[in-house]
Design a protein around this nucleic acid. Sequence first.
RNA 1: GCGCCCGUAGCUCAGUUGGAUAGAGUGUUUGACUACGAAUCAAAAGGCCGCAGGUUCGAAUCCUGCCGGGCGCACCA
Length: 561
Amino acid sequence: MKTALIELLAKHLAPDLTSDEISNLLEIPPDETLADYALPCFTLAKKLRKSPAIIAADLASKIADDPIIAEAKAVSGYLNVFLDRSWLSARVLDLALAPQFGAGGAHETTVVEFCSPNTNKPLHLGHLRNIAIGESVSRILSFNGNKVYKTCIFNDRGVHICKSMLAYRDFGGGTLPGDSGTKPDHFVGDYYVLFAKKAKEDPTYEDQAQQMLEQWEVGDAEVVALWRTMNGWAFEGFRETFDLFGTSFDREYYESQIYKKGREIILDGLAQGLFQKKEDGPVVVDLADIGLDEKVLLRSNGTSVYIVQDIYLAHLKAKEFNYDRSIYVVGNEQEYHFKVLKAILDLLDTECTGGRVHHLSHGMIELPEGKMKSREGTVVDADDFIWETAALAAEEVNKRWQLSEAEVKERSLKIALAAIKYQLLKTETGKNMVFNPKEALRFEGDTGPYVLYSYARASSILRKSDVPLDANPWEVSEFEVRLLKKIYLFTDIVKLAGARLTPSTLSNYLFDLCRNFNEFYHECPVLRSEVAGQRLALVTAFRNVCGQCLELLGIEKIEEM
RNA sequence: GCGCCCGUAGCUCAGUUGGAUAGAGUGUUUGACUACGAAUCAAAAGGCCGCAGGUUCGAAUCCUGCCGGGCGCACCA
């Protein structure tokens, strides 16, 4: 639709503006009564040495007679265009009723790493934001035509892991997660908390954890066996949460398997003179010329620091996926780390140079009463939160319907997950957000359930009619035009969300779309209308796009609320 | 000390590469179910876009300074 208008304008503006330039310039005005599309003529004014008003008026008269134009006029430097309603409605329905409406033809290979938890405690709300973003970004990129691989690195070793191991060994008394019915990752986490408590009483406890790490590193059989057992519990619990929240990975990496690797890359770089060996032993990289500090890579004792395994992992991913781009969904507290990583990869100038590496930095979650702090017990646990939300959703479902227990459980869980995911994705990725758990349990206004409800309403109408869809022009009301235009906008929005890696672009659009649908629904009878076929086609088009957006946000659709 | 990010309605947030009169949701007040689903719709009220300069046809958006908040800057991970 927009394309046809751009072509028409390009015919009259060549060679001063190309189609691409027109496309960039063309905007949707803030007030729909002004125009469907507007072309600001201010930049053209310089080029043509005519006033914007004259250029706009000139263009208006040139295109006014075209069959796709209902009205074209010049208003204070803008060319304002209304499209022909018959043409517009037929065009949008034709496009939006086709499968894969809005899908793109990009063809990059992209690796998206997200979640990446430590195995000493269960997932919390921060992980859920990370996962929701990673999952949605992956789906959006994939929809835009890219080949996407989702990966996760499990930080399954280190002194923090030994802390929960130590506390379990000393105070666990051989109990198993099954004994108390505790979810296994929570079971492990409980001993991490217990460690912190015991370390306060016993100042040597921190040292003991450090000693245990050393035993682990030399392969002490007992310690390694305990590590395997407890990591097994953690993974078992994680899998359950991943299933519950609806995510999965194409490739999983484990820190314990790669933490020693990458040394060769560093020694290689040292030989090439990219890095320096200091007199007192450590190998460092000097990043002063790009405004970063000196960074130690190999310690005096020859062992590598954490970033070396990230360097190795970047190479490993390049080898396994031959990626064009490697995205890391990680909190903004690690921005410096990724600057350093990219700089080092650039220095090494291998197939995974820093230019291909992108840190998709997301903001932190704060609660209304402040930051989440594990020490103060204010961390919102992922599983608990999902189930609590589901319980509240179940109350709402029970208010409205008489359903079996199983049906209530299934439906309320889907509604709860929609509420949570939508809430987590509606704020722009990079920004910190205040997350009020009570807000996520709200089912009205700008929420996941509002969107699900809109979708279910559309489904409900379609279930009730067997009138064939009809995309022939009809006398469209303002509500229908608004909805049609919004449906069409999806093609721009999904590209923009992919380019900016911001699911929030999509969720904000989705809310607007549903609002337009509900207004239409309220004002325009469908089934008992003389243009039932056309309105059913419009409802179908809405349902397609709404469903696609939900899919791209990682939210499961439901046909009935 | 050095660096990065954020400040928009009481609260939570949108606002595309600078574009027309700055928008939603929520909360408050009020109206609409004999209706294709009221988890909906409609209306009112609510703003020195942190402050002060600058850039230009035009600034919430770009630049500088200041104020307020967050986060980094380990031979930790």
